[in-house]
Nucleic acid binder design. Structure first.
Lengths: 202, 202
DNA sequence: ATTTGTGAACAGTTTCACAGCG
DNA sequence: CGCTGTGAAACTGTTCACAAAT
């Protein structure tokens, strides 16, 4: 399981999810090509990179394939806690945790600087003032954060998260975040996505 | 302006936004490295690919730089219409169009299969039954769609969008979308983003 | 006969390193 | 001198093409 290039990882993650509701017992790289748009060659190469023993000359067994992918990427195992920072419109969307059902993640805490929000909003996990941010993140060893604060607070809050030990941030703001080595950011922003689409044939 | 590789395009889009609230008059590639985490060499190479005349030996003029980027990527010019498909929790988040303020895009129509939603929800742009999808997309020559329907409808709706002439889809569902050549999908999914983070140092 | 596994060629992107400009 | 512009080298990922497996 040495090191899997990041495009391969992303494809495998998506593929695992696709397979999770694929009804037949076996699947070929050709069929995966139809479903995903990736060439069958990429798919086979991806599988080659994990040391995969479940393929034979008439395709792959879907269940074994899922298992292999999941443990190559450590997608199985214990549920990973994440925290939600910022409870404005975007943050509120995630309050019932629905978006993470059936995944390897769960939301363990939400933070907002407005007591109004932390007191009033209903949630399946505790909401706290941002004053508590460092304490709780350290106490629960949370490593991942979903950042949904106003743009103007984005970098300030990022610095606090990093200082508190966060290793990965999903960024819903439209700002770029500056983080030190060892911390990763995934940008999830409608505007950026639209601009990427529009800036010509991807 | 021949053809700019897509990693470069994405960086430039992000950089343009970052520069839009950078207060000083000039900026060096080194400073951009600090702010973004990209190496100064990548940054200079990116600028080299647009034919950029605004750099000199003590950095770049921020305003000229923004202008050059904007017109190299056609980020200026007329506002581009987009439609929103699916008005559940995620879709509703976008109803007031706030996420696109100040950008080159605007939402021109929203669709949902539930009359309940299209009638009751308040919005700054018209909401329609999905029955009207093809008609309106064609009539207004909409080329981009934001897909926020339930996972189970994702592929079916994608097929309709593609048939109606949509060329780019921002996918908020957690399913992979299968689209023909010439149509581009950008995935914007919390779960996928978290999994990418967790699947090891990006 | 189909479909996988895989070395080898290829393409795209990043990094290096340094000459040249202000 | 510090910083850009830019060939050339290094690297990463994708495509090709075909031998091996069933």
């Amino acid at each position: 399981m040495k090191d899997i290039p990041s495009p391969t990882k992303k494809r495998l993650i998506l593929l695992e999810r696709l397979l999770s509701d694929f009804k037949e017992e076996r699947i070929t790289s050709q069929k995966i090509q139809e479903l995903t748009g990736w060439t069958s060659a990429v798919v086979r190469r991806d599988f080659y990179l994990l040391e995969l023993k479940c393929g034979s000359s008439n395709g792959y067994n879907v269940q074994s394939l899922r298992e292999s992918i999941k443990n190559a990427l450590n997608l199985s195992g214990r549920k990973t806690p994440c925290c939600l920072v910022g409870l404005n419109r975007i943050g509120q969307m995630l309050l019932d945790g629905g978006g993470l059902d059936g995944s390897g993640f769960f939301l363990t805490a939400g933070f907002d600087s407005s007591v109004n929000r932390t007191e009033v909003l209903k949630s399946s996990f505790p909401l706290h003032s941002t004053v508590m941010l460092e304490t709780i993140i350290r106490a629960e060893s949370v490593k991942y954060a979903v950042l949904a604060v106003d743009d103007s607070e984005a970098q300030k809050m990022t610095d606090r998260l990093v200082a508190a030990g966060i290793k990965g941030i999903v960024n819903y703001t439209s700002r770029m975040l500056s983080v030190p080595d060892g911390v990763t950011v995934e940008n999830v922003c409608l505007l950026t996505a639209l601009e990427s689409l529009a800036a010509g044939r991807e």
